[in-house]
């Protein structure tokens, strides 16, 4: 057991030595793979951040009912009753115009501007949480509520979130296509690297076969090489993405401070990082496997 482990460790050592025998060549290959993988990985991170932002902002969909400015308290009470009786509505919250102004002051950092206003420009409002979240049901409910007396405007808060969600879906598809193409590129890079290696190590392979090496023994170093190169490429991609996010976060922090909010790009989660590394390792191994399967018997016929 320990013996077998030591043997594999020995192969790994030999493979590493070969990979960095020409330091520039080995590093260049890894860099190429790293850059190729960092593009979809980086786009994925940005999308995930946008996704988080959308979820944070939209939450459950809500309909805001803005009342006419001249609405009396009796009108409001009657409306409140009708809304609570509505079957399609889960929850109703009344926000008076004073409270709305107070909230606006606190949340947007526009206190100075608001303080300078002579009178409150905001209407009274109801925040309605519907029971159903499907876009069609929401639209129907909004139309129904808009027709109620004293309701000036009924606004579906999450409409823009749906639009953004659709945009994100488009983005995810784009990332998927990009990732597929660049994965193919990674496989191709490994395929070719291993092909060249098999060519340069022809003599060793031939002699090894003649003195009793199994196919597995001959294949193993090449597969290890491919997998390791893929893994290192994955690590390079991770570093590129993480460094880019760090660089982006500072100007982004300054930018979001201007809007009195705090938004930072979240780095790759541990799970996503692990997936990236495993995926790149697997692709490298796959490229090597394909290359070995194709070239080993063609270049040096088994007897």
């Amino acid at each position: 057991m320990i013996h077998a482990f030591a043997r594999h460790l020995g192969i790994l050592r030999a493979v590493l030595r070969r990979m960095f025998a020409s330091r520039v060549g080995g590093l260049l290959n890894i860099l190429v793979i790293g850059i190729a993988l960092s593009l979809p990985a980086g786009m994925y991170v940005l999308l995930k951040n946008a996704q988080g932002l959308v979820e944070q902002l939209s939450g459950t969909p809500q309909i805001s009912l803005f009342l006419a400015l001249n609405a009396q308290e009796s009108d409001i009470a009657e409306l409140h009753g009708r809304l609570e009786a509505n079957e399609a509505i889960a929850n109703v919250e009344f926000i008076s115009r004073d409270r709305a102004l107070e909230q606006l002051k606190q949340s947007t950092g526009l206190a100075d501007v608001i303080g300078s206003l002579e009178k409150n420009p905001l209407p009274d409002a109801f925040i309605v949480s519907p029971k159903q979240a499907e876009p069609q049901a929401l639209d129907a409910l909004r139309d129904e509520l808009a027709r109620l007396p004293r309701v000036e405007q009924a606004q579906l808060d999450s409409a823009w979130a749906y639009k953004l969600e659709a945009l994100l879906r488009f983005g995810r598809l784009a990332v998927l296509i990009l990732a597929s193409l660049l994965s193919l590129a990674l496989i191709a890079v490994t395929f070719n690297t291993i092909r060249l290696q098999i060519l340069t190590q022809r003599d060793e392979i031939e002699v090894s076969r003649l003195i009793g090496a199994t196919d597995g023994f001959i294949r193993r170093p090449f597969l290890y090489f491919g997998a390791l190169q893929g893994l290192f490429g994955g690590i390079a991609a991770w570093l590129i993405v993480s460094a880019s996010l760090l660089l982006l976060n500072r100007p982004l922090g300054e930018l979001s401070q201007l809007y009195a909010s705090q938004f930072v790009l979240q780095p790759l989660s541990p799970g996503d990082s692990l997936s990236l590394l495993l995926f790149s390792l697997y692709l490298g191994w796959l490229g090597a496997w394909l290359s070995v399967a194709r070239h080993l018997s063609r270049i040096i016929p088994a007897n």
């Binding site: 003599d203 060793e204 002699v207 003649l210 003195i211 009793g212 090496a213 023994f217 088994a302």
Partner: peptide
């Protein structure tokens, strides 16, 4: 079978006409 050949060859010592030494 091809897969059994390596184990046969491990019982043999072969000295090749062209040596087949590895110069690397």
């Amino acid at each position: 079978k091809g897969a059994a050949l390596p184990y046969l060859r491990r019982n043999l010592g072969i000295i090749f006409q062209d040596h087949k030494l590895l110069f690397d």
